[in-house]
Simulated scan of single mutants.
Amino acid sequence: MRAFRQVDVFPGSALGGNPVAVVLDAEGLDDDAMGAFARWTNLSETTFVLPPEDPAADYRLRIFTPASELPFAGHPTLGSAHAWAEHTGSSADRLVQECGVGLIELQRAGDGWSFAAPPLLRSGPAMDDEVAQIAAGLGIGAGEVLAAEWVDNGPGWVVAVLRDAEAVLAVDPDLAAMRFPTGVVGPHPAGGPADFEVRAFVPDLGVDEDPVTGSLNAGIATWFLGSGRAAGGYTVRQGVRVGANGFVRVSGRPDGIWIAGATTTVIAGTVTL
């Protein structure tokens, strides 16, 4: 029997976020067992907490989608920090997570946690042929993509900017034509529910549309704040088309770009693995 939490991450209202399953005390589980449990939970991600190998870390995290393992993902990072602190009784305001991309710094942030955006593994504008492929996957014309940029911090993200939030919500993707993990973002008008609307599609990882996505929002923030498309900080709504109500807070600070959201334990108990 192993300690277990299921945590709602980035909820803008009760049960409005993205759930992550967190197996604590995961020592002794092999890759096949982790992958099988991730397929069984059928969530965007399932995580497994292990003792750190780096002495600077509080714990080590492995992150699985229903189809494969990821070196980093955002909402599992926040949800696992919440679950680990709750399970261990830690009142620390800062934690360090070890994962496939290295060490990720975390801080408590009001009703949840925040993480420092990791460096991009791939950045820069998408090429014309890539824009055409992105548009085909999104089921829109290439001319509707105002800008497209690689913002890969682990999952392989490329993101397309559309004219506004309404256009983002109208996207009806052709998942069979989608060649990359693809995000799409557009601004809300002043007084809207957030500054930007975001959607995320990752069919190759077994997740057609992710409800709320920390890694994608971290990549977008790295691009937007670094290029002047946004300044200081902003908010994001995500998940409307899949019945979620996610809310992400982005801050640009002297010590980096931070992605924050609420975290709430919904299920606590044990699992037999």
Rank of each mutant, 00 (worst) to 15 (best):
A190T: 14
P187L: 00
D204Y: 04
A218H: 10
P203K: 01
E197W: 01
F180A: 10
A221M: 03
E197R: 05
P203N: 03
A190L: 13
T213P: 02
I220D: 05
L169Y: 05
P193Y: 02
V184F: 02
V185H: 03
S215Y: 12
V184I: 13
D174K: 02
E166F: 01
T213C: 01
P189Y: 04
V198M: 05
V207C: 07
A170R: 14
P211D: 00
H188M: 10
P203M: 00
G206M: 11
R179M: 10
G206D: 14
A167H: 09
A170T: 08
A221N: 04
H188T: 03
F196I: 05
A190G: 10
V168F: 14
F224W: 15
D195K: 06
D204A: 15
P203F: 00
F180W: 15
A167Y: 01
A165T: 07
F224E: 14
T182H: 03
D174H: 09
P187V: 02
G214N: 06
P181W: 04
V185Q: 04
L205T: 00
L205K: 00
A165R: 02
P187E: 11
P173D: 00
A221K: 03
V171D: 06
G192M: 08
V185L: 13
F196R: 04
L169S: 10
E197V: 02
P203V: 01
D172W: 02
F180T: 11
M178E: 11
N217S: 14
F196W: 15
R179I: 01
D204T: 14
G219K: 09
A165C: 03
F224K: 09
A200Y: 09
E197F: 01
L225A: 04
